[in-house]
Simulated assay, not measured.
Amino acid sequence: MPSTRVQEWAERGSSVRWRSTTPENAGHADVTVRVQVRGDRDRPALVLVHGYPTSSYDFHRVVSLLEDDHLLCLVDLPGYGLSDKPRGDYRYSILDDARLVDHLVRTTFGLDRFTLVTHDRGDSVGLALLDLVRTEGAPYDVTGLVMLNGNVWLPLAQLTGIQKALLSPVAGPPLSRLLPTRVFARGLARRTCTPALDAEETAAIEGMLAHQDGMRVQHRLIQYLHERRVHEAAWLESLAAGPVPTSVVWGELDTIAPPRVADLVWTEHLQGRQVPSASWRIPTANHYPQLDRPEVVAALLRVPPGTDPGHPVPGARLVGATGPTA
């Protein structure tokens, strides 16, 4: 039986067409991408970019808390959620997704300024987008970046056995064909969220993964880790040298992207900036802080990125803040 939450989420969205900019995808048809725009256009805009292997639904609890005082723009990247999941030799790419987000900001979202909110794989999409904006220019202003848990420096990652198997050129393709969607979803609900997600939320994740038989593309999707490995140093260096105020917000219970990743980003790339920078910890959150502690994440999104609010944020701990407005 389809998840009612997936159906409700789908009803709030719309579809756009996207032609991949990746040369290897030149022979493929356009893909249909699902987006949502919620809230008031007179309010501060947030563009939210999800991670692997889930979808924009990851942010639904935060969206419900912020849509009265923000404009919220969300996308299911190709291969994820309710967007198309092309098979065959289609190449899923972080850089291509960055160009997709740039395209949406210019067209469907129609923004001239916004804060970028990213999670997991979306962190790398966000870093790639900021690098594109910095090197190529854009007709909009990214006023801040808020990064949630993600392995933006792979040497410090702690991949799960399933991730390693899906990544493997030998084990990955058959595992993508044979691993039941329900088993995969239940593993995510138990391993990456604290407390574990309830049956309805787990069913929603399962429904998003099951769209267009999405388990079949998991081996191809997770190859983004190789692309990240090639570019991660340059992306972090570009962030450090760039003008965008940045907050790193991390659930401390994460064992996949452990807090040592946030420590490296803070100490080696953000702490010495003149641009406002901040590092936050959520002690009771796991890999998906936006699901575990949405009220804390929402409160931090109301704080200008990179700044010390000057008062405690319940449920969060400020590790440090630097820059002119720290």
Results as ranks from 00 to 15, higher is better:
187 G>A: 07
118 T>Y: 03
154 L>P: 01
178 L>M: 08
210 A>I: 02
120 D>W: 05
35 V>P: 03
243 P>I: 04
279 S>N: 06
245 P>S: 06
239 L>A: 07
1 M>P: 04
36 Q>S: 14
89 D>E: 14
195 P>G: 08
135 T>L: 02
54 T>H: 07
257 A>W: 00
153 W>P: 00
141 D>W: 11
258 P>W: 10
129 L>D: 00
98 A>F: 12
9 W>A: 13
145 L>P: 01
13 G>P: 05
49 V>R: 00
283 P>F: 07
45 A>F: 10
2 P>Y: 10
16 V>R: 10
324 P>V: 14
192 T>K: 00
166 L>D: 10
142 V>Q: 01
92 Y>D: 09
134 R>W: 04
210 A>G: 00
234 A>K: 08
38 R>D: 11
158 Q>Y: 07
256 I>A: 08
2 P>A: 09
184 F>V: 11
244 V>S: 09
53 P>G: 13
60 H>Q: 09
185 A>Q: 09
290 Q>W: 03
124 S>T: 13
149 N>G: 04
25 N>L: 03
124 S>D: 13
321 A>L: 05
70 H>C: 13
188 L>R: 07
217 V>I: 14
276 P>E: 02
27 G>Y: 09
17 R>G: 09
43 R>W: 05
265 V>F: 04
288 Y>T: 04
66 L>V: 08
80 Y>P: 05
40 D>V: 01
102 D>V: 00
173 P>Y: 05
209 L>G: 00
134 R>S: 15
208 M>A: 06
97 D>H: 15
164 K>D: 06
24 E>V: 12
38 R>N: 03
182 R>D: 12
156 L>A: 14
83 S>P: 03
205 I>N: 02
10 A>W: 13
126 G>A: 09
1 M>G: 03
188 L>A: 14
53 P>N: 12
186 R>I: 00
157 A>Q: 14
159 L>E: 13
170 V>E: 07
88 G>W: 11
201 E>G: 08
197 L>W: 06
141 D>E: 15
244 V>C: 11
275 V>D: 00
25 N>K: 11
241 A>Q: 15
261 V>N: 09
29 A>H: 12
284 T>G: 03
89 D>W: 01
214 G>Y: 11
81 G>P: 07
87 R>Y: 03
28 H>A: 11
171 A>W: 15
326 A>E: 10
57 Y>T: 08
261 V>M: 14
164 K>A: 05
297 V>R: 13
48 L>N: 08
314 P>D: 13
38 R>H: 02
252 E>H: 03
172 G>W: 12
63 V>P: 11
193 C>H: 15
314 P>A: 08
49 V>L: 12
164 K>T: 10
302 R>I: 05
120 D>M: 05
204 A>T: 14
240 A>I: 07
316 A>C: 10
106 R>N: 12
275 V>L: 07
208 M>T: 03
262 A>N: 04
45 A>H: 02
181 T>H: 05
49 V>N: 05
137 G>D: 11
294 P>W: 02
224 Y>S: 00
107 T>Y: 03
220 R>G: 04
163 Q>K: 02
200 E>H: 10
221 L>H: 06
86 P>T: 09
308 D>S: 02
